[in-house]
Nucleic acid binder design. Structure first.
Lengths: 134, 134
DNA sequence: ATGCAAAATGTAATATTATAACATTACACT
DNA sequence: AGTGTAATGTTATAATATTACATTTTGCAT
C-alpha cells in the first residue's frame, strides 16, 4: 500500500479534510480559523501539516496567492512540479496533468543550457463557467 | 520614444537602480535596507516603486520567492506574463522570452475550456555555471 | 502663468504570511 | 523497557505587504 490518508496524523488529516471540502484554494490562516474548534490553535500547527502534505503530494501551494489546494489526483506525482489553471473571476483552480509539460519545459531549459528539475506553472484567465457568465 | 527610465520618478529610479545592479532577485526589504541612505525610509516607498515598475514591465516578481528582478529586455512585453529559469544553487534568474510559450499555454488552456490571459512560469534547476561545478 | 486633477510622496500604524526556539509526547523498532 | 525519529504544543517573533491619511509634485488644459 502506498501513501494514503491512513498514514496521516490527526493534524494532517484535519488540515487535509478542510482543503478537500473547499472548492477554492485556502490560505493558511483561513484554514486555521476554520479548524480552531478541532483543537488546532497555532499557525505553526497548520504550516507543519501543510509542509508534510505538500511533501507527500496531497496538497499543492499556489505560489502567487499564498494559498493551498488539496490534490484530487490519486497518487499525484506532482510532489514537486505543479501546473494550474487559475480563474481570475471565481478563484477556482484546475490542476494540469500529463508529462508533456515536463518534456516541453526540459526542452526550453536545454536551449539555455539549464538543467531542468521541476517547475511551477500558473495560468490565469477565465474558467468555463465564468467565460459563459461574462 | 517609448517608456524609458526617463519617465521614472526619484524613488522608482532608485529602486530600479538597485535591482539592475544585482545579479540575483532581491526581496523588498533587502532593497529597502540597501537604499535607506538614499532617502527611502519605509517599506511602502519600496512597494509603491515596485508596483509601478512591474506595471510598466521594467521589473518582474518571482512569486515563489517573494523576490523582484529588473528586466533586461528592452521594451519587455512581459508586463503580465513571466517565465523564468531559476537556479536552485546560486539563485540566479534567466527570463525566457518568445511567444511560443504564449501559444503553447493557450492550447493547454483550451483543452480545458479555459480562457488564457496570462501566466507565471518558474522552472527550477541548475544553471550552466552551477552544472559544471557540481 | 495659473489653477486643477492625477500621480507620487511621506509617515505611522497595522495586517498578513511564515518561521525560530524549545520543551514535550507518540510511536515504531529492537 | 530503551532508543530514535517524527509529530506536537506553545510562545514569541520574523518577514512580507497593505491601509489610511495628510502633503507635495507634476502634467497639462485653460
Amino acid at each position: 500500500m502506498g501513501l494514503t490518508s491512513d498514514n496521516l496524523t490527526k493534524n494532517q488529516k484535519t488540515v487535509l479534510g478542510v482543503l478537500e471540502n473547499s472548492s477554492e484554494p485556502m490560505k493558511a490562516y483561513t484554514i486555521l480559523y476554520d479548524i480552531q474548534k478541532m483543537g488546532i490553535k497555532s499557525p505553526l500547527q497548520v504550516y507543519r501539516a501543510l509542509d508534510k502534505l505538500i511533501e507527500i503530494g496531497k496538497v499543492h501551494k499556489i505560489e502567487s496567492r499564498n494559498s493551498y489546494v488539496a490534490c484530487k489526483h490519486e497518487g499525484c506525482n506532482a510532489k514537486t512540479s505543479t501546473s494550474f489553471l487559475i480563474c481570475e473571476n471565481c478563484d477556482s483552480v484546475t490542476e494540469l496533468t500529463g508529462n508533456n509539460l515536463f518534456s516541453y519545459f526540459s526542452k526550453q531549459a536545454e536551449k539555455n543550457n539549464f538543467n531542468y528539475k521541476k517547475h511551477n506553472l500558473e495560468i490565469f484567465g477565465l474558467c468555463e463557467n465564468c467565460k459563459l457568465k461574462n
